[in-house]
Amino acid sequence: MVRPQQLLHQAARDAVRRPVPSGLGLDSQAVRERMVRRLHGDGVRHPGVLDAFSRVPRHLFVDSALAIQAYEDTSLPIGLGQTISKPSVVARMLELALGAPGRGASLGRVLEIGTGCGYQAALLALISRELVSIERLGALHAKALRHLQLAGVEGVHLLHGDGCLGHAPRAPYDTIIAAAGGDSLPEAWLQQLAPGGRLVAPMRAPGCQAQVLVVVDRTAEGLRRSEHEGVLFVPLKTGAA
């Protein structure tokens, strides 16, 4: 289960106390490979997911005061009450998405709800044919644009708007993945999911306040839903700001 994020000042204090591993700079491939080995040890097996994590420099997507913690398995604050999720949770969601029947090595056309700082979008760009990512907070949308440019990620369609509405002009989507959890799945997401497509999102489990990862597949017989492990994500909200 995801641990609640630390307060920004507490995380910054911890970052100052924790030394950089000997001989490993944050821009070192060795640091990312160490994270990948940990993910593999935790059960992540899809080669496309592991390769994406080895290629994307996570430290470029967090505030400089927290960069030293970038490759630890922890969520970190990114401002405006939002967080960058733990690598293990992001990897699990990507692996669930790639596990759709007949999916192969690509997620196809993807809709991401909640761009945040842009890190997951950078990962998705490596394992999709086309990526549309929506962020409701204008300041985070602008930050994600800067981060993706800094990391050299191209071909991502970043939008500022209400993610609960999806993005009908480019629908249908082979994959829909959300980085915020609500009480129920927005109808727009289900309508924009392509035949054979898969949706992965944190949602409140029926009858309680806890969140779980929910997977929805659009099959020939209709929508099929399954629930997986518990998680903790920021609340899903409507509107744009």
Score class of each variant (00 low, 15 high):
R92M: 13
R92F: 14
R92Y: 13
R92I: 00
M93P: 04
M93E: 14
M93F: 05
M93I: 01
M93R: 10
L94G: 08
L94V: 09
L94K: 06
L94H: 08
L94R: 08
L94Y: 04
L94S: 08
L94E: 09
E95K: 02
E95Y: 01
E95T: 11
E95C: 01
L96E: 06
L96Y: 07
L96C: 07
L96I: 10
A97W: 04
A97C: 06
A97E: 06
L98E: 10
L98D: 13
L98P: 07
G99E: 11
G99V: 13
G99T: 14
A100S: 15
P101R: 07
P101S: 13
P101Q: 12
G102I: 13
G102A: 06
G102P: 12
G102Y: 12
R103T: 13
R103L: 05
R103E: 07
G104Y: 11
G104W: 13
G104P: 12
A105G: 04
A105K: 10
A105W: 03
A105S: 15
A105D: 15
A105H: 11
S106C: 07
S106Y: 05
S106E: 06
S106H: 11
L107C: 08
L107V: 08
G108V: 02
R109N: 13
R109D: 13
R109H: 14
V110H: 06
V110C: 04
L111G: 12
L111Q: 11
L111P: 10
L111A: 09
E112F: 09
E112N: 11
E112T: 06
E112P: 13
I113Y: 04
I113S: 13
G114N: 09
G114S: 09
G114K: 15
G114C: 10
G114D: 08
T115L: 14
T115G: 04
T115M: 11
G116K: 14
G116W: 08
G116R: 14
G116F: 10
G116S: 01
G116A: 02
C117L: 09
C117Q: 08
C117P: 05
C117T: 00
C117H: 03
G118L: 07
G118D: 01
G118R: 12
G118T: 00
Y119P: 01
Y119E: 04
Y119Q: 08
Y119V: 00
Q120F: 03
Q120Y: 07
A121R: 07
A121D: 02
A122D: 02
L123C: 02
L123M: 08
L124T: 02
L124I: 08
L124K: 05
L124F: 07
A125S: 15
A125H: 08
L126P: 00
L126T: 00
L126R: 15
L126M: 11
L126F: 01
L126Y: 01
I127V: 14
S128K: 01
S128R: 03
S128E: 07
S128P: 04
S128D: 09
S128L: 04
R129D: 15
R129I: 00
R129L: 03
R129M: 00
R129N: 13
R129F: 00
E130Q: 14
E130R: 11
E130M: 01
E130C: 08
E130I: 00
L131H: 09
L131I: 02
V132N: 02
